[in-house]
């Protein structure tokens, strides 16, 4: 049971990070290497605000705003200028990640910070005593993912987004302002990452490298699931988080990483379009 909860915990966090990445990739065909650092922005917003004596919950509310502001700046200053040069967007956003990481180090120092747990204690679920904060993280992340998916497939805003992802030119010829949607989705993706970073800050050590730890797993999830579908990454994230936690039951964390990454590479090698890719209609 505990294994299941741990898996769910990792799954839901990774999902929050991946959702933003997927929308940005689907919409603009941009691989955003700085996405992990948006997580950092959220986490350090909490460090700053709680450090100044305000409550964690206020910080949690402001973190997505901080993430969105940084995301919109990155979009306007960097991504917008080169989004038609595919490989260069990878490099430029990686440069941005370097800048953000270094900026955090300059302001907060290179050492790990800790955020006081606003929800201490455990709660008994399904016969296991599980930390209350982790349960909250899980519940919020899953809820948010659900809401986003429902919005994506049931609202008119989601319909616009899916139309641009499916066929950018055609969507534009039907009157959809693709530029504005690029900005909006970049901001939203960054806000989600900022929120994820903030909500996990009490249970993780907050350090400048924490974003990098999410980078590879989230990209692998997307590639495994398939880049041009919104459902695919759900499977990708499930595969990565599930196998990580299963193997971690027997092996050390480092060995687990090696095995999971290798497996993911093999899958990507043989299913470059993602596991879920429909055989051409």
């Amino acid at each position: 049971m505990e294994l299941f909860l741990d898996t769910l915990n990792y799954f839901s966090l990774l999902m929050l990070v991946v959702l933003g990445l997927v929308v940005i990739f689907g919409l603009m065909n941009v691989i955003n290497m700085a996405h992990g650092e948006f997580l950092l922005v959220g986490a350090y917003t909490v460090v700053g605000i709680t450090g100044a004596g305000y409550s964690f919950w206020l910080a949690l509310a402001l973190a997505p705003v901080a993430g969105a502001v940084v995301g919109l700046l990155v979009e306007a200053l960097v991504v917008r200028r080169i989004y038609h040069r595919f490989l260069d967007t990878i490099l430029a956003t990686w440069g941005v990640s370097l800048i953000l990481k270094q900026g955090v180090i300059l302001v907060f120092g290179p050492t790990a910070q800790s955020v006081a747990n606003p929800l201490p204690g455990v709660m008994n679920v399904f016969g296991v005593d599980y930390p209350r904060m982790r349960l909250l993280i899980m519940a919020v992340a899953i809820l948010l993912t659900l809401v986003l998916y429902i919005a994506m497939f049931r609202s008119n805003l989601g319909l616009r987004l899916r139309a641009v992802i499916a066929n950018r030119d055609m969507a534009s010829a039907l009157g959809l302002n693709t530029r504005r949607m690029d900005m909006a989705s970049f901001g939203l993706g960054a806000a989600l990452a900022g929120f994820a970073g903030a909500i996990i800050s009490p249970v993780m050590s907050v350090d400048p490298q924490m974003g990098a730890g999410f980078l590879i797993p989230s990209f692998l999830s997307i590639l495994i699931g398939g880049v041009n579908s919104l459902i695919g990454p759900l499977f990708g994230v499930a595969a990565i988080s599930g196998s990580s936690n299963l193997i971690a039951g027997w092996l050390s964390q480092a060995d687990t990483q090696i095995i999971v990454f290798l497996m993911a590479m093999v899958v990507i090698r043989f299913f470059p379009e993602g596991i879920l890719k429909r055989r051409q209609k």
């Binding site: 590639l223 880049v227 990454f261 990507i268 090698r269």
Partner: peptide
Amino acid sequence: LSGAHFAIVTLCAAAVVEIAVTR
């Protein structure tokens, strides 16, 4: 593999090799 896939797979390979050598 396309450009993006190749970039990520090589990134991943570098991470794997680094961890493996550390171990």
